[in-house]
Design a protein around this nucleic acid. Sequence first.
RNA 1: GCGGGUGUGGUGAAAUUGGUAGACACGCUAGACUUAGGAUCUAGUGCUGCGAGGCUUGGGGGUUCGAGUCCCUCCACCCGCACCA
Length: 943
Amino acid sequence: MEYNFQRIEREAKIKWKENGVYKVSNNSDKPKFYILDMFPYPSGAGLHVGHPLGYIASDIYARYKRMQGFNVLHPMGFDAFGLPAEQYAIETGQHPVDTTKKNIVRYHEQLDNIGFCYDWEREIWTSNKKYYKWTQWIFLQLFNSFLDRKLQKAVPISILIETFEKEGNIHHPCPGDSSVHFDEFVWKTFTEKEQQDILMNYRLAFCGYGEVNWCEALGTVLANDEVVNGVSERGGHPVIKKKLRQWYLRITEYADRLLQGLETVDFSEAMKEMQRNWIGKSIGAQIRFKVHDSPYSFDVFTTRPDTIFGVDFMVLAPEHELVMEIATAEQKEKIEEYITYVKSRSERERMAEKKISGCFTGAYAIHPFSGKQIQVWISEYVLAGYGTGAIMAVPCGDERDHKFAQHFNIPISNIIGEKYNGEEAYSEKDFTLVNSDFINGLSPKDAAARVIERMLEEGFGEAKVNFKMRDAAFSRQRYWGEPFPIKWENGIAYPLSENDLPLELPHVDKYGPGPDGEGPLANIEDWKANHYETNTMPGYAGSSWYFLRYMDPNNEHTFADRAATDYWNQVDIYIGGTEHAVGHLLYSRMWTKALYDLGHIGFDEPFKKLVNQGMIQGSSRIIYRDRESNVFIPFNRIHDEFTLEELEGLGVKSIDGWADGMHVDVNLVDGLELDIDAFRKWRPDFANSKFLLNENGKFLCEAVVEKMSKSKYNVVNPDDIITQYGADTFRMYEMFLGPLDVSKPWDTKGIEGVHRFLRKFWRLYHDDAKGWIVTEEDASEAELKALHKTIKKIEQDTERFSFNTAVSQFMIAVNELTDLNCHKRSILTPLVKLICPYAPHIAEELWAQLHNSLSFGEGRGEVGSVITATFPKWEEKYTTENSKVYPVAINGKTRTELEFALDASQQDIESIVLANEVVQKWLEGNAPKKIIFVKGKMINIVL
RNA sequence: GCGGGUGUGGUGAAAUUGGUAGACACGCUAGACUUAGGAUCUAGUGCUGCGAGGCUUGGGGGUUCGAGUCCCUCCACCCGCACCA
């Protein structure tokens, strides 16, 4: 009986489904385990072999945990709203409702073919109104609360209103506009509109005017993390800064907690570092400088208040609001010219070439301590969006300031002493200050504290913490997203009541942009008449909390029952790519914190442990053709010297043209060898081309590793692999490719080895001729040893996500048992259980056969529930330790005295024992401290 | 520039965390069985040498009885951030 994976997998799938094997209950005595994948965005192209990598890993771990007796939540769903889905719909002339549905059905089918143990009854789509009702509800929670900075937690806005009525905002500085101050009396004089405008500046989800990333091609704004290198992440369209009315999440208020929370979670250092970097906390001071002969003054932010006496000039960002106010008449023209120049430079140009440029305003600032007059410049190296958009420049201590001073011949003062060489800035902090008035002789650290103290006393500066992170743009001028549950009246945003949720996304036939940078919803008359907000939420809205919904997916009364969220609690393991480091992961961490603050859930970090999987790249095949003669030349011969006859025979006049390389469909290539007939069929335009062959009659392509994509013809579809080799082979091979977290190219060729292994595995149980061959004999010592070694290794490997070595371990075990000609039930039964997480279909089949009629379906059918109970305990007796250190006592002897014994003992353990005795005698009863044995051989003696 | 990471056969990679480096697999070579095979099986396969042996984990140095593993230094590559004051 052959290993008929097609039959086996078909039957297993039916069995699992009929018996509801993977249904998960919220009521269980078992300990819980929550393992989650980043849910996919169902694109039109379907899954390629790279997508399921992380899913396979999590599935193996889920099944493994289930076997250990955990109640495992391992759900799957679809991130269905958002820009790409809408773009795809537009491009293919369909409606996003239809394309999304179609794509999901396809994804669903593909995932099922791989044999995942998802509880599909918990499936969620973010675009489903039953789901986005609660996305809207959470939005309202954010809208209706603010962050109390003293408590460092979100608090309902109603409490803030009460406070304002009692004492104004004296204890609650306005995060949106720090210039807003009022007491309880003034508050009461405000109109409703004025009051609401002020409250808007506190809300965690708020609407305001701001500079946003506007993408004309997509017709919408984008969040900072959706803009990469100055172009849109999706589609690579140019992005410009534009002032628009926008919704935002006030994530900056959570900056500190997002930073602190990283200490409590198990993410990779790189991931934590990325998030820290994005948040960009820096500690320093804000200092006010007055402008000479002018009513104006401006603030700068610096991390080095200790260098205050080294300030030689000031720089404002070109966009700084004071620039035109303080510029002197004679400099105005030059300033305007410079600003025009800056505006003419795109973000990309600025990044590409960092030129030193700037312009003197003609104005002078007054040093707050010394009263010295300091030139005020503007330059594009000072960014409007960071800090206060103005800096105090200390050339001797900052590289950029130094270059700027040199470039414009600004005299440089030295407050560092001899460590500053006049050539380049000295930015270390290990020096003693000089030429610095009252902080002379202090270290930078002490000086900074002293300066801040003095500034506070004199009232022109204070300690200040600055963050790089900005509030997150939360509205899109698009159709395919959650509508905001907001009604506008007289310029005031009124939240809908909970009872009115969901505010459904109206079905429209046309969903082009609305007027004046508004969303498509502005084109709908009903919508406008009701004064609903016309923007929709961004793609990351639905994904910021989906992990909570899985816990209680069908609840119609709340986003998830508190008992359910308490039971499942944090996601124990979250698997996904690093590309979400500063987007999704930060947003969901913030939402979790807000929901926690407001008492809706009992934990404030969503993901306990994050595992990053690498990408599976495509391995493209390239072929080269001489354009003129229309001859293809094998890659291995491109640098060859061709003989004249060869060239003439082919009609090649020159080989200069061969560099005409083209991608060829990887499915037409076996390893590197091109199937020429198939190629001619695929590209009839080359049907008449000639091929220069190698001596063995083969034509070889070049292999290039690059991203898997349709246009490169290097996409491998998991469905094809599964048809040919089966899902179990596919799963094991993906794991076998290498460590989970590194990127690696797909190589279909290598899959044979894994497939061969599974067939060999099958042959332990079945013989092609004799059929079922499992015997009842007692196992031998050698067989037990092989089994137990395998159990131990695979448990360890699975535990630490080292699935590639686990698969190797299986292969070793099967090779060993095959060599031992072992077909014994007592060995083969545990082996089935062991392999189940990796190759569940074959395990299902073998299990059923081992137990004759007993199938998974009986007794709730989980393989795992049976497995844990009968896993044999690892016994000391079978330990494979092959190196042991025997400690023996000795003092005061040198190695040379023992060398002869060493030499004599290289052969076997007996001679070593002998040698040891000799040594001991030699030393008159004293033995060495350690004698080191490696695999039965004495390697060394330690005194 | 800053931060994080990685360097091991022709290839993907192992190495019990300081103990025979290269497990397992791909590829390759030879052979067997086959009408045939891209099926299956057997043997070989880090480099070097006829050989005993010698050499080998990016380079150099160090600690140690012993280093792929720890320390210093240099080099290369990948990822992230990047005029962040």
